[in-house]
């Protein structure tokens, strides 16, 4: 869950523009992590050493690791460690932004340190993010966006991000939530929850984005917007809200009830004051998550 929030951290710090971020996310799937980025992240090499080795690579036909060893920027055991280490996924996003020229290696180096410090991320990226850490990350994301959440809403959003990872894919970045009183829909599906927690959530997206979203969700290749695509959006929402009801029951012993999901025919939705819209960028397009409370 680290990569997702690194993108919004970069926006928050005005380090990159939303357009640069979107472009970088769209490129992620055909990018591979480089040794230099890893070495910098581990603190084995500085940004300027990495830049120097990259420059030398353009003149000498040698690998990055080879040059770094020759120059004593890396020790053998460090190189071995890098080659077998699992890199945290947010590094790839940072590296893509460097490749695009949106960031320099020096800027990325300090942004990575800042991101780790702010979120108290574990030094060793190999370890799976634990649940509390992820939850704290999400809580801070909403606080930083001026939209602190109640305990139940936080659990709800935690589950949203987990279910996006589980059912659609982890290659997304949420942007800051936008408070919204009136929302113009494109293709929007909503579902109402009532009981001890009362809220309506929805997903809204362009038809072509819906086709990609549905293809991932249903694990089928859709090429046109048909009833299976719209059913996939409803299913995702219904499954997510069902799992929320299971969590509410298990953690708080409270039973919420769900209305069937529905397609919003209305081109404009009137929302309450505490409602917000959360844009979530995937390589295939932006999914807008509505939380009406």
């Amino acid at each position: 869950m680290y990569a997702q929030f690194f993108g919004s951290y970069l926006l928050n710090k005005d380090a990159v523009s939303p357009e640069q971020l979107t472009t970088a996310i769209a490129r992620l799937s055909d990018t591979h992590i480089k040794l230099g980025t890893l070495a910098m992240h581990k603190g084995y090499m500085t940004a300027s050493e990495v830049d120097e080795v990259c420059f030398l690579q353009t003149r000498e036909d040698k690998r990055f690791g080879e040059i770094a060893l020759e120059r004593n920027y890396l020790f053998e055991d460090q190189l071995e460690d890098l080659l077998k280490s699992q890199n945290p996924d947010y590094l790839l996003l940072g590296q893509t932004l460097v490749d695009m020229g949106a960031l320099s290696n020096t800027e990325l180096e300090s942004l990575m340190v800042g991101y780790q410090d702010e979120n108290e991320l574990e030094e060793s990226p190999e370890e799976e993010a634990n649940i509390e850490e992820t939850s704290a990350l999400i809580e801070r994301f909403f606080e930083n966006s001026g939209k602190p959440l109640s305990e139940h809403s936080l659990m709800y959003m935690n589950l949203v991000f987990n279910n996006l990872v589980r059912f659609i894919g982890e290659d997304f970045t949420p942007l800051a939530p936008v408070p919204c009183n009136e929302y113009s829909t494109t293709y929007c599906v909503t579902q109402a929850i009532s009981g001890p927690v009362t809220l309506t959530s929805g997903v809204d997206m362009e038809p072509d984005v819906a086709i990609s979203f549905a293809s991932r969700y249903a694990k089928m290749e859709f090429d046109e917007f048909d009833e299976y695509v719209s059913a996939s959006l409803e299913d995702f929402l219904n499954l997510h809200n069902g799992l929320f009801s299971v969590n509410m029951s298990n953690i708080y012993s409270e039973e919420v009830s769900l209305d069937p999901p529905k397609h919003e025919e209305d081109p404009t939705l009137q929302l309450t004051d505490s409602s917000f819209v959360l844009p979530i960028i995937y390589p295939f397009g932006t999914v807008y998550l509505l939380l009406i409370m």
Partner: peptide, 9 residues
């Protein structure tokens, strides 16, 4: 067959 698999349901 449901996503709402609570004890109560």
């Amino acid at each position: 067959v449901s996503s709402v698999g609570t004890q109560e349901q």
